[in-house]
Structure formats: structure tokens, C-alpha cells
Design a protein around this nucleic acid. Structure first.
Lengths: 186, 186
DNA sequence: CTAACTGTACCGTCTGGACGGTAATGTCAA
DNA sequence: TTGACATTACCGTCCAGACGGTACAGTTAG
């Protein structure tokens, strides 16, 4: 479905994400995206024949990119614990750095909440993968939820945790594979 | 600032929340809200002279309602731990029951992310209150983040956790004030 | 009398999207 | 080799409708 078009398509998507972040999620109009991407409106509509298609493209790329990074960080024959560690590291990395929040998600939700269904499905599958290799189910879910909470806070622009606390949380989340006596098995 | 107007004002706010939930956050127009609330557009604009005022009202009521419930559940002379327990119980209650998600938040974010600033400020103060009476800072933050994660998941319509898992998480979160839980399954 | 509306008419702006071009680059038969 | 046609990748314009907001005259309840 998604071909390799390095120039226009991805430039449009990037422009949309940047615009939602800079001007606010409510300002994500086709005209504005086209202008930001440096294409005409007709050109935009050639690549994404409707606003819905644009949103779907944003979601698709978002998932694909994360999945690619995750798969790159954890080879498939790894145990679930390794995947969990990769997930945590990847999430914290995307959280801690100056990586901008995916504010376009609000645009998609405003347009139609169903656009986020692929994201939810991806999350479901991911959590199941994480849990299938987990020794402590509750602890894994708690870690997952905490990361989800951090994502949410960032998305809403909340600067709740400062330096030390966030470091402590990071350390706590990352400590799961280390410092654990490998004696408890199921 | 906010007077006690049980009828129109709150009916409008409720209508706006219901509309965002039913029709989607993007369909929250003044006309639609007025129609749903059973008032004329002029009547709506009498109470909320602009859409921004409507959004601010939504946010204000949202915070005030939660704060009232929290204060009712935990008397002020309680220790921080009691407040934490009340917060957890209240959050889980609002999460587990068929209480609808506050989808209007997406409308507010689309309109202007600054509308959510009071919410973030409230969260900051709350977490500080929670932490000031906490013996284990990291554990408290983790619990807070997990609840935030649950809220986020619900907001985005994700049905990630099913029955048993959510029960386990609930139990885990609630076990903090008891000395010896030792009653979790598995 | 006043507060709290209703109802209608209207305005300027913005928006998604349809539409008709167009230039460049293939593809392919004669 | 060439001319006919197809496809891709856009551009620029236009429009109907929705939106937030204004204005204002009239109505009803306390």
C-alpha cells in the first residue's frame, strides 16, 4: 500500500505534524498543510484525496515508524523481557528528548475518533507481546500504563515531573531487567 | 466567578460534553450545543459570550467537580497517604464505571491548547500534595502515572485491559495503604 | 423593572473538495 | 525514429456550506 516516496508524501506528512504542533491541532487545514509543505492544494489532494486520507496517513506512518524502531531494537527471537526493555528504552527516548509531541493526534480525534483505531489495535498487540514474555504480569502492565501516562502528560503539554523525579522514574522503569535475581520463573 | 445556576448553565455544559462524546469532538459547534441543550443560540451566548468561554467553562467545571469529590472523600487533616488513597479510589471509580470519557477535552485542545493549562496546573498541585505525604516518592509517582495512563487509554477509546487484568491493577493500586496485601491472584 | 432568555436575520471568514488545466515522463506500435 | 497516447505529479481557481459571532426586537417570570 505505502510506496517509497521520499519527497512529496512524507514532506506533506511532516508539514502536517509540524503545523499541528506549532499552530495548534485545530489549525490543521488542507490549505495550511499545503502551504507549509510547499505544494499546492491540488498537489496535496493528489497524494491524499481527502482530509481523512491525510489523517489515516499520519496514523499509518506513526505506527509504522514506531514499529520499525522497536523491531530494530529487539530482534524477533528475543524473549519478551528483551522486547519490554526495548520498548521502555524507546519510549523514554522519545519522551525525554526534545522530540515534539504528536499533537496531530488531537486533529485526528476531532475529525473522527475512529482514526485512532489502528493505534489502539497496535497497542493491544504490543501489550500482548509484552505480556506473553513477562514473569510478573501486573508489574508489566503497571510499567506500560506509566509510560502511557508519561505520553499523555507530554501530549497535553504538562510539565509535571521535573529533573530528579523523572530520572527516578526512568531508572525505576529501566531497572526491571537488571538487579533481578533470575530465580523466579513463573 | 461561577454562580450557582443549576439549570441553564450546567445544562449547556452537560450538553456540550454529551455532544462531544456522541457526535465526536470536532462537531462541537455553538449551534449544535444550543440545540442539544434545548436553548437558543442567543441563550447560549448569553451564558457563554464566546466559544472560548464555553471551553473555559467546561474546564472549570471539570476541575471543580473533581476537586469537590476529592475533598469530600478525604478530610483536610488527613495525612498524604489518605489523600492518595482517596485519589486512587476516586480515579478508579470514574474509570471503571460506565462514566463516559471527557471527549470535549479534544475539542478544547483543537480550539486552543492553552485551555488545558488550568488542568495541568491542577494536576501539578495535586501531585505535590500527594507527594508531600508520601513515604515512597517513586512508588507514588508510578501510581499517579499509571492512573494517568488509564485515563488516557479511556479517552482514546482503547479497551486495552480486560476484566482480570484491570482487577489486578486496581488491587495493586489500592493495596498501598494496607500493610500486607498478599491477596493478589496468580 | 430587570434578568433571562427566544427567534430571526445576517455577515465575513474559513474549509473541504471538485474541477480543469499542464508539463514531464514513460510506453509502444509502425 | 517517430508520433500517439497514457500516467504521474502536480497547479490554480472556484464554490457551497458551515462556522463564530452580531444585532436586535420580542417574551416571560419574579
Amino acid at each position: 500500500m505505502s510506496g517509497n516516496r521520499p519527497s512529496s508524501r512524507s514532506r506533506i506528512l511532516a508539514a502536517a505534524a509540524a503545523l499541528a504542533r506549532d499552530a495548534g491541532p485545530g489549525k490543521l487545514s488542507l490549505d495550511a498543510v499545503a502551504a507549509r509543505a510547499g505544494v499546492s492544494k491540488g498537489g496535496l489532494l493528489y497524494h491524499f484525496p481527502s482530509k481523512a486520507a491525510l489523517m489515516a496517513g499520519l496514523v499509518e506512518d506513526y505506527i509504522a515508524e514506531f514499529e520499525a524502531k522497536l523491531d530494530a531494537a529487539a530482534t524477533e527471537d528475543d524473549t519478551g523481557e528483551a522486547l519490554m526493555k526495548a520498548y521502555i528504552a524507546l519510549s523514554l527516548k522519545s519522551l525525554d528528548e526534545k522530540q515534539p509531541p504528536a499533537s496531530w493526534i488531537f486533529s485526528a480525534m476531532a475529525e473522527d475518533p475512529d482514526f485512532l483505531k489502528p493505534v489502539n489495535e497496535f497497542r493491544r498487540k504490543l501489550l500482548n507481546r509484552l505480556l506473553s514474555g513477562s514473569a510478573d504480569r501486573t508489574k508489566t502492565i503497571m510499567a506500560y500504563l506509566a509510560i502511557e501516562g508519561l505520553h499523555s502528560l507530554k501530549l497535553f503539554g504538562s510539565d509535571l515531573l521535573s529533573g530528579e523525579d523523572r530520572d527516578a522514574i526512568d531508572a525505576h522503569l529501566l531497572s526491571r531487567t537488571r538487579a533481578r535475581p533470575a530465580s523466579s520463573r513463573e
